[in-house]
Nucleic acid binder design. Sequence first.
DNA 1: GCCGGGCATATTGTAAACAATATTGTTCAC
DNA 2: GTGAACAATATTGTTTACAATATGCCCGGC
Lengths: 241, 241
Amino acid sequence: MGKARTNGRGLGAAAAGTPQSPEAEIYHKIHVAIAEHRLLPGARLVEDQLGEVFGVSRMRIRSVLHSLARDKVVTLQRNRGAVVAHPTVKEAKEVFAARRLIEVAMAPDIVRAADDAAVRRLKDHIKKEKKGEHSHDRAFELKASHEFHTLLAEIVGNRVVVGFLRELMARSSLITAIYERPDVSSCSHLAHSNLIKFIERRDAEGLAAAMLQHLHQIESDLVLFDRGEQPTDLKSVFAGS
Amino acid sequence: MGKARTNGRGLGAAAAGTPQSPEAEIYHKIHVAIAEHRLLPGARLVEDQLGEVFGVSRMRIRSVLHSLARDKVVTLQRNRGAVVAHPTVKEAKEVFAARRLIEVAMAPDIVRAADDAAVRRLKDHIKKEKKGEHSHDRAFELKASHEFHTLLAEIVGNRVVVGFLRELMARSSLITAIYERPDVSSCSHLAHSNLIKFIERRDAEGLAAAMLQHLHQIESDLVLFDRGEQPTDLKSVFAGS
DNA sequence: GCCGGGCATATTGTAAACAATATTGTTCAC
DNA sequence: GTGAACAATATTGTTTACAATATGCCCGGC
């Protein structure tokens, strides 16, 4: 580890930073494409095609796909290739349960670690979220919203936890793509501004409560019915027709 | 996902279960070898050698090493191969901070989810720990101790969290291998029995407090000085001479 | 005797060719 | 006309050989 390496999860840097390794860049680009809902759950990721798109050999793509699979954002099927992951309802609930567990528990650490510069960074990010909301670009809006949660972990400064959060946010992005109800209003920046208030007051308990409520709100904006399980990926086709 | 797949982290199953995929087995074996301290931090993992040992091609080994690198139990250096990871002091502290965050926060969920069968499983595991302690096999003892913590997560039943815990336990194993002071007495089974008492009483707060104290105890049994940072892996050589 | 350059070796990185497999389309029998 | 068997295609899995790189050794110069 030479300088500022492996500060997150996966190859290079998943959300921020400048990937320099040849395949780290591809990893990053696909990751972002999925986070921005340009690649939707169920989309096939053919090695040859991706290899041509990025001008590299299949082998590189293969390696990248394995890394993405480890992040649970793509699913590998033996002899059948890779597809963008399609989280089940059960998986979705588990991801949100994990988020509640970790993000709520972080509250005391956040309050402790958040200095003036950190609060300023958070407020700057809120501006970004508002801008995204005005532009009515749902993908950008959602990505910014997820970045806020990662940012909170970054303030605490524990790279292990940041890595967990990155993974959870990536999976949340997929879950939202699948299960979001069409009539959402969200306005996540309001909830986030609320969280910042508690941080400024150094109110850890209040922050924890607000975070818990926020996460419940997000989950209740989804349609997570428990019927049937496992659409086996072709459910997505049926869902489209 | 056909039947009971991807219930943990990484390939196949990291700690329990029967790996059937050809390279999942190798992944599992190396993982266990590291957890049992048969492979120590800094040990080189040459592709050809491993390929011959397991009777497979280099490519399989390569894939496995990448998976292990993602788990942070091995470190990949470009053009220089793979070595068993050598966590820094900073990394070690972050891992333990993450464990405190998650394992303490799990307390209410554990109390809620622990039925009679679960408590029995925990008590059975304690027997295993005691046996390990009598045999004076430090490696076995430590592995059993880590399994207890994973078991707690499994009782809650959230596979995402179980995955996180598995990763944290694997890294804890490496950290212990490096930083354990020689005069430890540990007796983890006592602390674990204590945790079970709180679970039986359905005392979430008590469990949380006991868990926090237990984790602090484990960390204070290590020698985590903050000098110098980043040994770049050759610190291990210096440490030996 | 010590330092530096250059060669030899070991190991990993990469690419290309080949084999195995799944999917799709077609044809044939009934 | 329907169904199953078969062939064709597309895609992944695997092996092989080759290139690039780092490390250690040896030798010559000073």
